[in-house]
Design a protein around this nucleic acid. Structure first.
Lengths: 129, 129
DNA sequence: TGAGTTTCAGACATGGCGTCTGTAGATTGT
DNA sequence: ACAATCTACAGACGCCATGTCTGAAACTCA
């Protein structure tokens, strides 16, 4: 039973969160945001995280500028979808329907939420007939 | 950014999957199921996994019998819900609604799925008014 | 050219997690 | 009761994912 590495780790995700907010940023900007009290050694840490994110195609790097400008290459929604699929694979043999029923049954679904969900479903009905 | 341990690891989940299927089992039965070709050393491995699962309150152990009988102490649905909440916390500040819309928009939702979902929503409407 | 950045390759450290060893205790057959 | 066999359990090992750091080369601007 070999361990499966995460597609995006916690520290990497923290970097992405800032990029989603700022649209684009330099290493320095990211470091200051992520480690307000940190030493300058953390620049290299953030750099490494960006390097790994780039390898995973989650971040784009503009090498034309100096310093380089970084931006997210995947939307938050994509990561959500990926994570949900992973959960489905592990716990439901890849089926997503059980996830839906679990979510719907969970507390915290307001009447408005239910209404908007119905809207989405209607849309799908019209699309696919 | 310290690493956060998983609540149930992959090897532990494999044990749980068998327990969900068999309802109850001994270490030996689990080992034969999980590692059909394995050596006897793996008995201890499974034992350790069970020990950790017990500590996490995911497994119950009956010490009255010999050998001990093990059974799952959490339903698959509970793990699903927990995992979904974790995802929501990491990617949506704890909101579950974004997960729902992502799932609904994803491929693989049949007309029947949509119908059963509506049924669930209706039920909730009646409950909470 | 020199000062102050930034980039980048590589190394290091911590700890999670799957696995294994060794020993004590329980059970069964004779 | 004794040997043979199984199980339980404590502890340790080792791999590797992941967050962090070091040092040197590359770049920019004055």
């Amino acid at each position: 039973m070999s361990r499966t590495p995460q597609d995006v780790t916690d520290a990497e995700l923290a970097v992405l969160q800032v990029l989603w907010e700022l649209r684009t940023a330099t290493v320095r900007e990211l470091t200051e945001r992520l480690y307000p009290e940190g030493t300058s050694a953390l620049n290299a840490t953030v750099q490494k995280l960006l390097e790994r994110l780039e390898a995973k195609k989650c971040v784009k790097r503009n090498r034309k500028t100096w310093p380089h400008q970084f931006s997210a290459a995947v939307a938050r929604e994509v990561l959500i979808a990926r994570q949900l699929q992973t959960t489905a694979n592990k716990l439901c043999q890849g089926e997503i329907h059980p996830l839906l029923t679990t979510l719907v049954k969970a507390r915290g679904l307001s009447a408005k939420d239910r209404q908007s969900l119905r809207g989405l479903l209607d849309e799908l009905d019209r699309e696919k007939k």
